[in-house]
Nucleic acid binder design. Structure first.
Lengths: 293, 293
DNA sequence: GTCTCCCATCGAAAAAATTAATGGATGTGA
DNA sequence: TCACATCCATTAATTTTTTCGATGGGAGAC
């Protein structure tokens, strides 16, 4: 049973005539006759009595009509699926590195729910390498990572914004007295760094490797919020994205250290899988980030 | 959009694979790919993300799935239309002559509703000629008439049962004393007859016409119940179907008069239109009459 | 009776669905 | 890492289905 025939059937009932239905639907009359015959034989029931030049529904035809109208209703609902964009419950699986969640994404979440209240956001925090993997295997819809601006296979970059990575200490720390610092000044201090997989930790190590220096942090913590708390207590120096320390720097709780020759810049970037349909939920995610001050 | 494609879609979602769905549905894999492509282009929305060798529903695909399942449910309901025979609300339009309603049909109605409680019976009482007309123009589904057993154009006879038409008088009437009556004895009495269109009135008139006798009833009433009441009060003699006077005759309220040479027999008959689908409602109607004692 | 209207039928034509074969991409397992 | 198998996409050919035009029969209108 195909919908074409069902629609023809309903139109016939409305108009009370095969011929009129044919005209209206742009079929020839014989086509309509054939369609109804086909329906009747598929269903194994007679739909119309043909008496004289009038047709009338059989009782079974009446029954069928109810369901046929059901089918038409559902079909018209289906046709409007695309239109009420994003107004339906949909999931958005976001992969993100921890520092960007705290420093960038968190403040946008209320706005996101204001604009698309029906979305169910699932976040997964992990390091960039794992996030790329998960994006490629479609475990995530979109990822927000910090990285160099390089090509990523199968991934489309939807957004990129430069981010300085800075050395930071407590504003009470004696080292803040210095107007100019060299890398050796820094390395004399106890270092608190993120885990080895963290992209800016890697960047730092690579840069230092050029000068044949090896990095020996006295503490590794995978959580930037904790690192910041420790730094504020004067426990040492860290190397963190600017966005995460900016606020505390403005409040004079933390100080960004001017280290000569170590202006490292990465990009916060949003990617999605190149084979992925870009949903309104994903678009909004990118838009909000793009408009972020 | 055709249901074939929708079913394939649902099967793919169930099995998580185009290939498996193709195997199960007996299609080649390219057919399934084509069907989904067709659906996606008709709806203007992407249904699946094809990432790596895995497929997954897009949010819009998820939405569509709900409706698709709706369509499948309705379709499976449709397939069972024929099966629960007559269990659904259906109308039965019955044409009947008044005397058969009173004398035959009335007592069967409770049984009818016991067996097919969902039927809505509409009855139309009229004379035979009008009932045949209405049957031919599909204003009635079935008619129950008294007539000679002759061919009726476009009508199928579903049932016939002989019915004697008899002269009847009050059991108190002096004429009941006679063991044998001739037609002239009858005609001396005041006659109460049904209207001119009534078939047994016509039969009587035709038979009398052979002997060149013209009928002059002193009263015409189109309602046999009323006629019987009048007869019982001793107002005269009537000519009525046996079935309608039988009960009163048994109770000795009425007497059937033995009139020599006037054994007129007609048939109570059920007809339906030859082009009409015979519904379970109609079948039951015929069956109950056939089994009537 | 003739004419028109309506549905059924039939063979031809058009359109659509289906297939088999092939290819590209992606995991998998030695 | 290199075959190998798996999965979906593509294409051209084939088969099936749908549609059409012409014709016919029956019923109702004038």
């Amino acid at each position: 049973m195909e919908l074409r025939n069902v629609f023809t059937f309903v139109r016939i009932v409305d108009l009370g005539s095969f011929t009129k239905a044919a005209q209206e639907l742009g079929y020839s009359q014989s086509t309509v006759t054939f369609q109804i015959k086909q329906l009747e034989s598929e269903l194994g029931i007679p739909l119309f009595d043909r008496i004289g030049k009038k047709i009338s529904l059989t009782p079974l035809g009446e029954e069928f009509l109810c369901f046929a109208i059901d089918l038409m209703k559902t079909t018209s609902q289906i046709k409007s699926i695309g239109s009420q964009i994003g107004m339906n419950k949909a999931k958005l699986r976001v992969g993100i590195i921890e520092s960007l969640f705290i420093g960038r994404l968190a403040e946008l979440i209320p706005e996101y729910f204001r604009l698309m209240p029906s979305t169910q956001i699932e976040t997964k925090t992990s390091d960039g390498v794992k996030l790329y993997q998960m994006l490629r295997s479609n475990e995530l819809d979109i990822i927000y990572v910090l990285d160099r601006k390089i090509y990523q296979k199968d991934c489309i970059r939807a957004f990129a914004s430069p981010v300085k990575i800075v050395f930071v200490a407590s504003s009470q720390h004696p080292i803040t007295k210095e107007k100019k610092l060299s890398i050796s000044d820094i390395l004399k201090q106890p270092l608190i760094l993120t885990e080895r997989d963290s992209i800016y930790r890697k960047e730092l190590e690579e840069t230092l490797a050029l000068s044949d220096i090896e990095l020996t942090p006295f503490l590794e913590v995978d959580n930037t919020s904790i690192i910041m708390k420790l730094i504020k207590k004067g426990l040492g120096i860290s190397f963190l994205p600017e966005y995460i320390v900016q606020e505390d720097a403005r409040k004079n709780k933390l100080a960004i250290l001017p280290v000569d020759g170590y202006d490292i810049t990465l990009y916060s970037q949003v990617f999605y899988n190149k084979n992925k349909w870009v949903s309104p939920q994903m678009k909004l995610f990118v838009n909000l980030l793009s408009n972020q001050t």
